[in-house]
Design a protein around this nucleic acid. Structure first.
Length: 660
RNA sequence: GCCGCCUUAGCUCAGGGGUAGAGCAACGCACUCGUAAUGCGUAGGUCUCGGGUUCAAUUCCCGAAGGCGGCUCCA
């Protein structure tokens, strides 16, 4: 009997019992097969009618398989060292893999070295990965000592994609066999795997941490070990180099080095202060944002940072968001001499969101349909009581300023408003130098939502249409919405490919109801407006943090704290540079002249470390020609530029918000 | 909030039961120089904070605060 299959696009007839490896000509570059769109081991047997393609180690799928197999090697090593350790799950992740273990003490860096050493032995032993289909009862008896695996076997009925140990039609165990075919170790796993461990040429264990079993706080903790694996040592080194580069961009580090901001311990966790240089950047960002909002028809409002609790009762925040709020301040309580309450106090809360305040502005008088859309904008400071473990530099803080606006419009206006809003958002982000985006659509979380399904449906639909109209990639985020409505968030990729959630646009039918917002329609009836919540920076703090990392601290001139530094070849040229500096200042340029006692070389080094966009160097030759010499941050120099030309170059780059 | 690790001068880091060191930065003096570090000198620390053990704690133990890496969560 023979099989007819498609191999790499061409029809072939093969004898029954042919493995995928053989079907693929035993080509060593393949480490797995893609069969009818599903990944399989090479040693599995081809079936009639299948469409077969080879998977190379260097492909995305190949790398995932390599990393998954490396996770198995690590688990084997861990169990060889600590036999009592229970196996959790061990999937590949971007750039690497992890494996979770129960019943094991937290690992030290020395422990990791030990595991790595054991892993090398396993790799050198070239163990084969051998797949074996088992029945549920067989699996349960073989895995009697693995409580987590038993749990996975019993949830197999409802397989989830993220648990790759089980899933698909059958349960499988992968045996690791030594050169003589003896069983060394085995693990419940869906597979596929690389043919043998010898293919693992470059790996490294990166870090350990605790994690919750199956991702839920309610479950027990497991110890997670993260590792990375690559096809070659060069790839591994390249990855480690990229990590080191990313670390150099860390805004927390640059914030200190460039004297931009700090987190004084005295203030408490997650509460930043901005130093003068950080303040310049922040003001430049905010000023430009204000100007653009003004042009786009927004009106500016101001609201206080605290309020009596009834506002947040009306808005529903105390019902749905209390965990994220600072506890209340109780004021004005009066007691009788016996200690009983004579006059109850009032709770005041720091505000976690600006929307209720803007609603009060809307409600301050009757509104006409002629006023809609009404766009209220505020740089609003909000405070959220974030759990201590989640605070992270400027990207996750407890006190922040949102560039927050609320748009009140009619149902008919909503779709158009959303489209133009998305356009406005993306253009503004581009002006700040971010131009690689995708969108995420966060929809209703059944456990944490108020309002009718129909309203949610309509709001989600409108957002979805606006998103599609933008032409950007749209990723669904089921259950990710806030309690009052669905949202689109703009995910921004930075210069080294990391994504950040920045802007959010949310449609809200609920708060207008809860606040009983109204407008008078052209037919004289009273109607309820729809509210759109939106923030472009997300928070000014986070945006500044992301920009710092995006630019690695080398801000474009329009944002740079010091735009130009004058460096004299010797101090006799100080006054000549002062002349140029004063002209630049008249154009509003932030310029300093370095008149310190240092040598010129040292001044250049200092300016370089401060990442100042323009160094203007002047000595005898320049002065004689009425010129200056440019040095840029990348080391290039342009000598003998006439003063007028120099001023034009600098002011143009600032005006155009160009990077230099 | 959970798990682990960390906290010594402004920064980066040595050190270690008998109250401390380096480099850079700061300050002073000399040097006046053409594209990433001139030389010499001076000053700077309740060793994060609070308890405990000890004749003696910055060092060992406990707790807190802050930080870092994850988990969970999120602008």
């Amino acid at each position: 009997m023979s099989l007819t299959v498609q191999v790499a696009g061409s029809a072939q007839t093969l004898p029954a019992g042919t493995s995928y490896a053989a079907a693929l000509n035993n080509d060593k570059k393949f480490i797995a097969a893609l069969v009818n769109g599903e990944l399989r081991d090479l040693v599995s047997l081809a079936q009639d009618g299948e469409v077969i393609e080879g998977v190379e180690l260097t492909s995305a799928e190949g790398l995932s398989i390599l990393r998954h197999s490396t996770a198995h090697v690590m688990a084997q090593a861990v169990q060889q060292i600590w036999p009592q350790a229970h196996l959790g799950i061990g999937p590949p992740i971007s750039d690497g893999f992890y494996y979770d273990f129960g019943n094991i003490d937290p690992l030290t860096p020395e422990d990791l070295d030990l595991v790595e050493k054991k892993m090398r032995e396993i790799v050198n032993a070239q163990q084969k990965f051998s797949r074996r289909v088992v029945s549920e009862s067989q699996a349960k008896s073989e895995l009697a000592k693995e409580p987590f695996k038993l749990e996975l076997v019993s949830i197999k009925g409802a397989p989830t994609d993220e648990v790759m140990e089980v899933g698909g039609a059958e349960l499988t165990i992968y045996d690791n066999l030594d050169k003589d075919g003896n069983l060394v170790w085995c693990d419940l796993c869906r597979g596929p795997h690389i043919p043998h461990t010898g293919l693992i040429k470059a790996f490294k264990l990166m870090k350990t941490s605790a994690a919750y079993w199956r991702g839920s706080e309610k479950n027990p903790s497991v110890q997670r070990i993260y590792g990375t694996a690559w096809v070659t040592k060069e790839d591994l080194n390249g990855y480690l180099y990229r990590l080191a580069e990313a670390e150099k961009r860390d805004h927390r580090k640059l914030g200190v080095e460039l004297d931009l901001f700090s987190f004084p311990e005295e203030l408490g966790s997650g509460l930043p202060v901005f130093h003068p240089k950080g303040g310049v950047i922040r003001r430049a960002m905010e000023d430009y944002s204000r100007a653009m909002h003004e042009k786009a028809g927004y009106e500016f409002v101001y609201t206080p940072h605290i309020t009596k609790s009834n506002l947040f009762e009306t808005s529903g925040h105390l019902q749905w968001f209390a965990d994220g709020m600072y506890p209340p301040m109780k004021l004005d309580e009066e007691l009788n001499p016996d200690g009983t309450i004579r006059k109850p106090g009032v709770d005041y809360y720091l505000k976690p969101m600006n929307c209720p305040f803007h609603n009060l502005i809307y409600k301050s008088r009757g509104r006409s349909y002629r006023e809609l859309p009404l766009r209220l904008f505020e740089f609003g400071s909000v405070y959220r009581y974030e759990k201590s473990g989640v605070i992270h530099g400027l990207t996750r803080v407890r006190g922040m300023t949102q560039d927050d606006a609320h748009i009140y419009c009619t149902r008919e206006q909503m779709a158009g408003e959303l489209k133009s809003l998305l356009d406005f958002v993306l253009n503004l982000l581009r002006d700040y130098g971010l131009d690689d985006f995708y969108l995420e659509l966060s929809t209703k979380n059944a456990e944490k939502a108020m309002g009718s399904d129909a309203d949610w449906e309509q709001a989600t639909q409108a957002l979805s249409e606006a998103a599609h109209a933008s032409g950007l990639k749209l990723v669904p985020d089921p259950g990710g919405a806030a309690f009052y409505g669905p949202k689109i968030s703009v995910q921004v990729k930075d210069a080294i490919g990391r994504t950040w959630q920045m802007s959010t646009i949310q449609v809200d039918f609920q708060l207008p109801q809860r606040f009983e917002l109204e407008y008078q329609a052209n037919d004289g009836n009273r109607q309820q407006p729809i509210m759109i919540h939106r923030a472009l920076f997300g928070s000014v703090e986070r945006f500044l943090g992301v920009l710092t990392e995006h630019y690695a601290g080398a801000f474009p001139p329009w944002l740079a704290p010091i735009q130009v530094i004058g460096i004299p070849v010797a101090d006799t040229f100080n006054s000549y540079l002062d002349l140029i500096g004063n002209q630049l200042r008249e154009h509003g340029v932030r310029v300093e002249i370095d008149k310190s006692d240092e040598r010129m070389q040292k001044k250049i080094r200092n300016a370089q470390k401060e990442k100042i966009p323009f160094m203007l160097i002047a000595g005898e030759e320049d002065q004689a020609k009425g010129a200056v010499s440019f040095r840029y941050r990348d080391g290039t120099q342009v000598n003998a530029v006439a003063i007028e030309e120099a001023i034009r170059i600098i002011t143009d780059s600032i005006k155009d918000r160009k990077q230099v």
